[in-house]
């Protein structure tokens, strides 16, 4: 099979770009789930981040500001989920789903006047010295800043969860909220913060789609990225670096199938575009078949402090 136009350098470079939104959302959700809460509203928070970031960037001509407002919007939306789940003790699955529906509605409403406009996008940030290395330079070190920020967030989450007191407390809350409560940790407060962090990350991820990857606004443009992020958290066994690996693997598949589409391979477009989802399911099956793989013990369980 002849595949012109698929160069490994470009493939890896665009893989990193296409993986970044999912990586951001997945690392945020990792923290949320580590605290023992399952937020299925990732897709909704992402798309709201995408539209708010886009609107800000178009109106202020500053993509950086777009990312900031997207993170705030994502975090604000997640407070609805946090309030319902933590204070009103609602079902986490249903509430997350409701959040996704609301997010899709809000974004479509807000984004209507902005359809068909191009947004200012991030400039590539060439890391000095490193970007001059042949092959590796353009492949790894000549991306826009958000690609590196996303990796830094992963590193920070890994460090905080593993080596700091606050990370230990967060994990304790996620493993056994009754014990953590008995020790005097504020289960509700910690979870609320974790959920907001997850919302902010999802917002950033969404904005990355509308500001860098596309960069345009179309209704429903996250197209399932939030759900894939949720799958990657499971794939990663709730470990930050594995989330990076998972997101990049997934990004690779996405880029490869897009390239195959462009190269006009004899596989129908529809089958190529469903391949990322099929492969995600396959990976989920392999991971879950291996048995217990470190899911936080209190994940999805209701916490009610009885005096």
């Amino acid at each position: 099979m002849d595949l012109p136009g698929i160069s490994p350098v470009l493939l890896i470079a665009s893989l990193m770009v296409s993986a970044t939104p999912i990586l951001l959302a997945a690392i945020g959700e990792t923290v949320v789930e580590k605290s023992g809460v399952l937020n299925l509203g990732v897709e909704g928070m992402m798309i709201v981040g995408a539209v708010v970031g886009f609107i800000t960037a178009v109106n202020t001509t500053s993509p950086a500001l777009g990312f900031v407002t997207a993170a705030i919007a994502g975090a604000l939306l997640s407070t609805i989920f946090a309030t319902l789940v933590l204070f009103f003790k609602s079902n986490q699955v249903a509430t997350g789903l409701g959040l996704t529906l609301v997010g899709l509605g809000i974004s479509a409403l807000l984004g209507k006047p902005y359809e068909g406009i191009k947004s200012p996008t991030l400039q590539a940030f060439e890391i000095p010295v490193l970007s001059d290395i042949p092959v590796l330079g353009p492949m790894l070190f000549s991306h826009d800043p958000m690609v590196y920020i996303s990796i830094l967030i992963v590193a920070a989450v890994w460090f905080v969860l593993k080596y700091t007191r606050i990370g230990l407390v967060l994990r304790a809350v996620g493993e056994n909220h009754d014990a953590a409560h008995a020790l005097g940790y504020k289960v509700i407060r910690i979870r609320f913060m974790a959920i907001m962090f997850g919302g902010a990350c999802a917002g950033l991820g969404g904005a990355y789609i509308s500001l860098v990857r596309v960069p345009q606004w179309t209704e429903g443009m996250t197209a399932g990225a939030g759900w894939i992020a949720l799958a990657i958290v499971v794939f990663a066994s709730w470990k930050p670096w594995r989330a990076l690996l998972g997101a990049y693997l997934f990004g690779g598949i996405t880029v490869l199938q897009l390239n195959l589409q462009a190269a006009g391979v004899a596989i129908p477009v529809e089958y190529l575009s469903m391949s990322p989802f099929l492969i995600t399911i396959l990976v989920l099956v392999i991971i879950s078949a291996k048995g217990n793989h470190g899911a936080p013990a209190s994940l999805g369980r209701l916490f009610h402090a009885s005096n």
Partner: peptide
């Protein structure tokens, strides 16, 4: 806008879960 109905339905679910 058509999306406002979608939002309306989503809100209904959230209010329902809250009053639940």
């Amino acid at each position: 806008p058509g999306a406002s109905i979608q939002l309306f339905q989503g809100m209904l679910l959230l209010f329902l879960l809250a009053t639940d």
